[in-house]
Amino acid sequence: MADKKKPNSADDRIVQETDRQFLERTSTGTLIKDVLEKVISNRPEDPIAFLADYFDSLEDETNLVSKAKQILLMTHHSRPVFETNVRMAYNLLQKHKVTKKVYGVNGTVYTDLIKALCKDVPQTVQIKLLKRIECAEHECIKFDVFCSGVFTSCVLLDYVKLSEMLFKSIDLQKSGKADKVLCETVLDQLRTALASNKSDARRVVESGYNLGPDGLYYALDKAMKRGNLNHGAQTLDQFTTEACDAFLTKVKKLR
């Protein structure tokens, strides 16, 4: 008797189920709510692509690093949500299995994540960055270290893009090669600005002026007047590498 009744009651339930109950049973409602929340807080430029990526990686629980990378790239590093995302990524990576019973973020998974983040950065720059913030396998990565490393990598991505843009504005002919003297002058200005100590207010203001249109014009003009133009050219890669070297001096070496 009992066996007979069961399918009946199940049928009844399906018939009587309201829309809300259906959403709750399949947990679609919370899923959509979650993703909407993510879209709103991260404000991606291309929401559709964002959604596609999100659902794509939803199933894939195995590759923690790519998932963490996706979380980190959800939003720009200048937005406040970025911090929350870093925390989320860190929590996710804590599931990383180190040994049989030990879980947590170790050097391997951290370095993998940094490498994944800097995939588009020129190889030479990537190696130099890793030299500074890479961690060995046995090291346990605290959140502070993680946060700083991830932030550095994300900013570096922007930095590389920007310096490429800068190169393009020097190289007007789009020949892929810009005059070496001009590049050197521009880079020199940047290096002096970066070398100025933050506590020395006068140096900071002076660097600010040197990078301004007037100061830059003055420096470029002087370089042109020295008159050894067309003595060589610099490629995009060389230029970005040198610009990034200046950036990397600001990255503290891990202890």
């Binding site: 310096s163 970066l194 830059l216 950036f247 990255v251």
Partner: peptide, 18 residues
């Protein structure tokens, strides 16, 4: 662009962990 590069670097410099 140069000023932006500078700003980014300073941002990173002030966010380094101790």
């Amino acid at each position: 662009s140069l000023q932006q590069l500078w700003a980014l670097s300073e941002g990173v410099a002030s966010n380094q962990t101790d």
